[in-house]
Design a protein around this nucleic acid. Structure first.
Lengths: 259, 259
DNA sequence: CTTGACCTTGACGCTGGGTCAACCCTCCAT
DNA sequence: ATGGAGGGTTGACCCAGCGTCAAGGTCAAG
């Protein structure tokens, strides 16, 4: 006959755990000797080891009880199910490992790969790190609000970057992004942007996107919030008869303000 | 700006969890809008996703806080450590899977492989299943009390089984193990056992074991508890001048009771 | 007889939130 | 303007699976 600590040690559990199993009725209370000590037999060892095998597999104790007190085919089914969960858990941990490695490598897990690639392309064009951080934050906000649109938006952005004028536009954002009203470069930016807009209108791309108004508003306001100079550039373009940013519109000539 | 549910959804957590992180100071409380709603920016998204990445890896939230607020080399070390734990956990789960498979196959995980092999050999000799269960339980009790001796004991048992007389002895245990005083077969068993003992004495094996007295007592009492007929056989042998079971002793001739 | 290692019951603590409850804010359709 | 849906807010209680005292009774050895 065994004492509780012998039983516990052999099964690889603590004495406290064994008593817990008694309390919840998972392991039957054994006989006591004359001094009140519990005395265990081989059946208790077998049961306890089964309990641990299942519990180690992550099975809640209540289900362990069900399984151990069920018929053999029910037991086999349950074990099958548990094994499936174990395999899934192992895969999950492997995924966690790779995410952890990416986190340690300094990757921004807050954004889908497409956006990361886009930002890398900007960086490759010589765009300053401070501006890229602004863009990154803006894309995070957009991705958080419309996660399923982000890939198609980024695809459009990539197309835009195929245009050398657009590349020139971005190169303005190199270095300090602290634009101030009166900076003469703002006019240069506006000139480039206007050329791009004209080309877009000529190519019939205006109004050709599949995004709804609400989303266009989101893009515009996010970009305006993040890029301080954008407001000033937009003001100039507005004088020249343009409206919009994400979606370009030409204001009718008769409503143009006097230049 | 994001609401709490947008933030939570994007990071793949519940609103409740985000508020929990605020309460424990893991994620800073953001500004509120005029109606008291929390408004989140991109930095919160980044921080929350980092929290989740670490928490998914099983890191307790208190340590997550430490890590995120620490320097880069401390962070890298911590991640290294976590990844080590993850690998260990994956190996543990794979071990659990194999134990689970053995459990489902009806194996007795309560005994080391050596004992299982020994019992299989008995089964192969035609020993009855009921007796084998008795032996199994006895070995479980012994293994639980002296786990590091069990392998050498079993090795001795295997040697014994090389003797045809011992095999004959075991074959008596086939079928019902309910021995009763007066059963003539008990004398047969005693005869065989005596032959074995004489041979052991002649081979100089008596007293040649490396086990201490306490352990010999344990073996004897366990076997006597489990095998009901053993007592009767031992009584006959005692009359013939033998003592012991695990460790054989020849009682000096002058102390022999009259036969 | 003492000492130290066990045994007993009982109660509280811990992680990481889930799950109400009770109430406020905003927006949209009527 | 009104009512309802669908957000948001705090607060309080609840869970598993034990760990960790606390406050003693028992056993074996010296």
């Amino acid at each position: 006959m065994l004492t509780i600590s012998q039983l516990a040690a052999y099964a690889g559990v603590t004495v406290r755990a064994v008593r817990h199993y008694h309390k919840i009725g998972l392991l039957p209370e054994p006989e006591r000797d004359r001094s009140g000590y519990r005395t265990y037999d081989a059946a208790a060892v077998v049961r306890l080891i089964r309990i641990r095998t299942l519990a180690d597999a992550g099975v809640p104790l209540a289900k362990v009880q069900e399984l151990l007190d069920a018929g053999p085919e029910e037991f086999a089914d349950g074990v099958q199910e548990i094994d499936k969960d174990l395999r899934a858990e192992i895969r999950r941990l492997q995924g966690t490992r790779s995410r952890l490695a990416r986190l340690a490598a300094g990757e921004h897990l807050a954004l889908p790969q497409s956006v990361v690639d886009y930002l890398d392309r900007l960086r490759g064009l010589g765009v300053g790190e401070r501006y890229i951080e602004l863009e990154r934050d803006a894309w995070i906000m957009i991705a958080a609000q419309v996660p399923d649109l982000i890939d198609s938006v980024i695809a459009k952005k990539h197309e835009e970057l195929d245009d050398p004028d657009m590349v020139r536009l971005y190169s303005f954002f190199t270095g300090e992004p602290d634009w101030r009203a009166g900076d003469p470069r703002i006019v240069e930016v506006a000139d480039i942007l206007e050329r791009l807009m004209i080309r877009a209108v000529e190519a019939g791309e205006v109004g050709a996107d599949d995004f709804d108004d609400q989303f266009v508003d989101l893009m515009d306001s996010t970009m305006l919030e993040s890029a301080p100079g954008a407001e000033l550039v937009l003001a100039i373009l507005k004088e020249r008869g343009w409206r919009g940013w994400t979606r370009i519109e030409r204001v009718p000539a008769d409503r143009l303000p006097p230049s």
